[in-house]
Computed example of a mutant assay.
Amino acid sequence: MASQQMFRSGQARGEGQAKADQMMDSAQGAADAARAKASQAAQSAQQSKEHAAGTLQQTGEHMMNMAQGAMDSVKNTLGMGDKKS
């Protein structure tokens, strides 16, 4: 009888270890998936930041050109503009 108890105990321990290993593998897979999603989110955020910076750069240049054009227009109206032939 003692050998049957030892067998059952060993069997239960083996099954428990197998279940624990299975759960660890599942947790590892979930952690890997979370890391991949976080990496994708960071990359997307970086691309958005770069796009926004480019848009702001273009807008700033456009505004400077408009201001320069307005200033030239005022100078020409007042007769202070460059005389280009």
Rank of each mutant, 00 (worst) to 15 (best):
M6S: 09
R35G: 03
T77P: 00
L78F: 04
A27S: 09
K83V: 12
E61G: 11
A53D: 13
N65P: 00
M64K: 11
S9P: 01
G10C: 06
A45Y: 00
Q11W: 12
D82F: 12
G60E: 04
E15N: 15
G69P: 00
A41L: 05
M66V: 05
E61Q: 14
Q17V: 08
G29E: 01
A31N: 10
Q68P: 03
S3E: 06
S73H: 03
S9W: 01
A33F: 04
S9Q: 13
S73R: 11
D21V: 04
T77Q: 14
H51P: 00
D25R: 13
D82L: 08
S48Q: 09
G69D: 01
G79M: 04
M6R: 15
L78M: 07
H51G: 06
Q28T: 11
V74E: 09
K49T: 01
M71T: 08
S9T: 02
T55D: 07
T55I: 09
A42N: 07
Q11E: 06
S39W: 06
S73C: 12
A53K: 13
M63Y: 05
R13L: 02
Q46D: 07
K37R: 14
Q47H: 08
T77C: 01
M80I: 06
H62S: 15
N76F: 03
D25T: 10
A27H: 09
A30V: 04
H51R: 14
M23W: 02
K83C: 08
D72I: 03
T77D: 14
L56V: 08
D32H: 05
Q17K: 06
A45D: 06
D21H: 11
Q68R: 15
T59M: 13
H51W: 09
G14D: 09
N65Q: 15
G14F: 05
A18Y: 07
A18W: 04
F7P: 00
H62E: 12
Q4I: 07
T55R: 14
M63Q: 15
Q68T: 11
D32K: 15
H62A: 15
G69C: 03
G29M: 00
M71S: 13
Q28I: 06
S44C: 07
G54W: 01
A12I: 10
L78T: 02
K75R: 09
S9N: 08
A33M: 06
A45W: 03
Q11I: 01
R8S: 11
A70K: 12
M63V: 10
K19C: 14
A38T: 03
Q28E: 13
Q46Y: 14
A34M: 10
A30W: 07
M80H: 12
G16Q: 00
G29K: 00
S9M: 02
S73L: 04
